[in-house]
Simulated scan of single mutants.
Amino acid sequence: MPEIRVLLAADAALALPALRELRPASPQMASAQALRAHLAEVEGQGYRLAGSFEPGREEAAAVAGYRVLTNLAWGRFLYLDDLSTLPDARGRGHASALLGWLEAEARRLGCAQLHLDSGVGPARFTAHRLYLGRGLNLTSHHFAKELT
Rank of each mutant, 00 (worst) to 15 (best):
R107Q: 10
A89F: 13
L80T: 08
R92Y: 02
G46S: 14
A104P: 03
S140I: 07
H115I: 01
A13R: 01
L98S: 09
E59D: 10
G133C: 02
R90D: 03
L114F: 14
A50C: 15
L136H: 14
H38R: 15
R108E: 04
L114W: 14
L132G: 07
G56W: 09
A37I: 01
L136V: 09
L99T: 05
L130D: 10
H141N: 12
G93M: 06
R36V: 00
A40K: 08
E21Q: 15
R23I: 01
Q113N: 11
A104Q: 10
W101H: 15
A25K: 11
L39Q: 00
A95F: 11
Q113V: 05
L80V: 13
G110C: 03
R90S: 06
S118C: 13
H115Q: 08
L109I: 09
H38E: 04
G56R: 01
R90Y: 10
R57I: 07
Q28I: 01
P27Q: 00
P17T: 11
Y66W: 15
A95R: 08
D117W: 06
A15Y: 01
L98G: 04
G46I: 03
S118T: 15
P27D: 00
C111E: 02
L130Y: 12
H38W: 14
H38I: 00
G51I: 01
V63Y: 08
L78Q: 05
L116P: 11
L83R: 07
T70N: 11
G46R: 14
E58Q: 13
A40R: 10
Q113W: 14
G100S: 12
A123G: 13
L49T: 02
A123Q: 14
L114E: 13
C111I: 01
R76Y: 10
L86C: 13
L109E: 15
R76W: 05
L49A: 10
R23A: 09
Y131F: 12
T126A: 15
Y131G: 04
H128N: 07
W101I: 02
R36C: 04
L22K: 13
L109S: 15
C111M: 03
L72G: 15
E21N: 11
W101C: 02
E21L: 04
E58F: 13
L35C: 04
G100L: 02
L35A: 05
G91K: 08
S118L: 03
H94L: 00
P17I: 10
Y79C: 09
G110N: 13
Y66V: 06
H115E: 11
L22I: 04
L130T: 05
Y79P: 06
F77Q: 07
E105R: 11
G119C: 08
H115V: 08
W101G: 02
L116D: 10
G51D: 00
N137C: 05
A50I: 06
A127K: 05
F53R: 08
G119E: 06
E59A: 08
A60W: 12
R90K: 11
E41S: 10
G133M: 00
R23L: 05
P17F: 09
